[in-house]
């Protein structure tokens, strides 16, 4: 009985999100274009996430290097440390960790903001004021999340690699030039491109889930908290599912 109820809710929600996404695409290219609001959201979503993304990326690069080094020392291939950590960061850890941080910060913020606008009738007020609230609130936020996350991933990767450089130099001496040479010699276009492309999908998932949860928020202030929370949970799960699919696709395309 409980299992039936779970699957019923699951398919209902999947259907609702699909309809919501369909509505997004149907409004995406139609005028009026909310350019100013889109740019404002890029600033809020992208620029204001930058410090958190940079900090976590730096620590991630440093810690990863310190954790891997002992194993490489045991096998006598310590010199491969920059290349190994570099590939791990660029191909997988950088995009996924940045996307998860992004889901935690931006997914919850969008869910809570739209949820609170919904329960305090601000979305209705917007519609009465001659504004298509779906276009103004949802389309701009989803687009901003989709296009800013890949940039954050690129910057995050760079900072994580700098953390790696410091980590490498904590127990040895490797010049700045030699470190980057070792990293880039082992990186190919096939490593960077799939990671960059999948981060667009991560950004889209975070944006659409946050907006869906917030826009359909119910039951007053309690519902706002629930929207924010479920936006983070669902978008984090989606990030891993997209990652899984991306690995299969790149494998099929021979980019692995």
């Amino acid at each position: 009985m409980l299992r039936t109820q779970f699957w019923k809710q699951f398919f209902e929600e999947a259907g609702d999100i699909s309809r919501f996404t369909g509505r997004l695409f149907s409004q995406w290219f139609k005028p009026r274009y909310e350019i100013t609001e889109f740019l404002r959201q890029c600033f809020i979503i992208g620029y204001k996430s930058l410090p958190l993304v940079m900090l976590t990326a730096f620590i991630m690069g440093l810690v990863l290097t310190m954790q891997i080094r002992p194993f490489l020392v045991d096998y006598g291939v310590e010199s491969q440390l920059p290349a190994m950590v570099g590939i791990a960061i660029v191909r997988e850890i950088g995009p996924v960790i940045t996307a998860l941080i992004f889901a935690g910060k931006i997914g919850s913020s969008i869910g809570a903001e739209l949820g609170s606008m919904k329960v305090t009738e601000q979305i209705d007020a917007m519609e009465v004021s001659g504004t298509n609230p779906f276009k103004y609130l949802v389309v701009t936020r989803v687009l901003a999340a989709t296009f800013t996350l890949p940039l954050l991933v690129l910057l995050g990767d760079a900072v994580a690699l700098y953390g790696t450089y410091l980590g490498v130099n904590m127990s040895g001496v490797t010049s700045f030039d030699l470190f980057w040479t070792k990293v880039f010699r082992n990186l190919s276009f096939g490593d960077v491109l799939p990671a960059f492309v999948k981060s667009f999908f991560f950004g889209f998932a975070v944006g659409i889930v946050g907006c869906f949860k917030g826009y359909n928020s119910q039951k007053g202030t309690e519902g706002v908290g629930r929207s924010a929370n479920s936006a983070v949970v669902l978008s984090s799960i989606l990030i891993f599912i997209i990652d899984l699919i991306a690995v299969q696709v790149t494998d099929v395309l021979g980019l692995n």
Binding site: T120, E121, Q122, A125, M126, V128, S129, G130
Partner: peptide, 19 residues
């Protein structure tokens, strides 16, 4: 609808001011 709404004012119960 947008044209006609310009002639109607709506004071919401929760004020609906944009925070």
């Amino acid at each position: 609808l947008d044209q006609i709404r310009m002639k109607i004012g709506f004071l919401f119960q929760s004020n609906a001011l944009y925070d």
